[in-house]
Design a protein around this nucleic acid. Structure first.
Lengths: 107, 107
DNA sequence: CTCACACATATCTCAATGGTTATACGTCAA
DNA sequence: TTGACGTATAACCATTGAGATATGTGTGAG
């Protein structure tokens, strides 16, 4: 019963995890070690976060020898943008309705 | 240390709470009773969710006699849209860099 | 082959939080 | 004024999940 929005919001809700994702967005592909160095939490914690980000489709991993490189995944944020636009849209359309109503009342 | 993004993501991460917010976006102002009728959880639970949504600036309340009317708040989603756009932007700019690089390599 | 390294997984602990029921508070009706 | 109604708050419980440490797994170096 967990849709795309659920997964995205839940995954991005944690600050540490979102910071990791932001870093991957800003600076491109990074190894687990590089991410751990700035994350402020232990390497296992980073790995766990990366696992969840991967499950959510927000990142992909690429193995190269002993290292694993993670990168932000294109288009994963699309449902989030859609949702936000949709909600804002509902608001605006109600606002338009209100405007219409006021205009009609004016006549 | 909790910025706007933190609050927004955290608040919208819970499915029940997000559903309440969506309903307010889609259908406009609603009383607590109306929201409770569809929420699938108890009235106190709904009140608590509404409290958090209000703290996050996502809704506002209006008292009218014994009833409290809640409505989605304009512009509260702006930071979320900005963040999403920013992240997608970083990705695209890196993509542009890559294109540039490939073009340069082609020469 | 063996050891060191990079990362993943297992296990545990603790705090946060979403849910419930019970109750308090304010408002309207009679 | 009393009682019903609509909502908020209190107190509690159960679950979740993020964190740590310890260990497993695979890979490259010597």
């Amino acid at each position: 019963m967990s849709n795309a929005h659920d997964t995205l919001f839940r995954t991005l809700a944690d600050p540490t995890r979102r910071a990791i994702f932001e870093r991957l967005c800003r600076q491109g592909e990074q190894t687990v070690g590089a991410l751990t160095a700035q994350a402020g939490v232990s390497q296992p914690a980073v790995s766990k976060h990366l696992g969840l980000l991967k499950e959510a489709g927000l990142v992909r991993d690429r193995h190269e020898g002993r290292q694993t490189h993670y990168s932000a995944q294109l288009g994963a944020l699309a449902p989030l943008m859609d949702w936000t636009r949709e909600m804002a849209g509902f608001w605006e359309s109600r606002f338009d309705d209100l405007e219409d109503l006021l205009k009609r009342m004016d006549q």
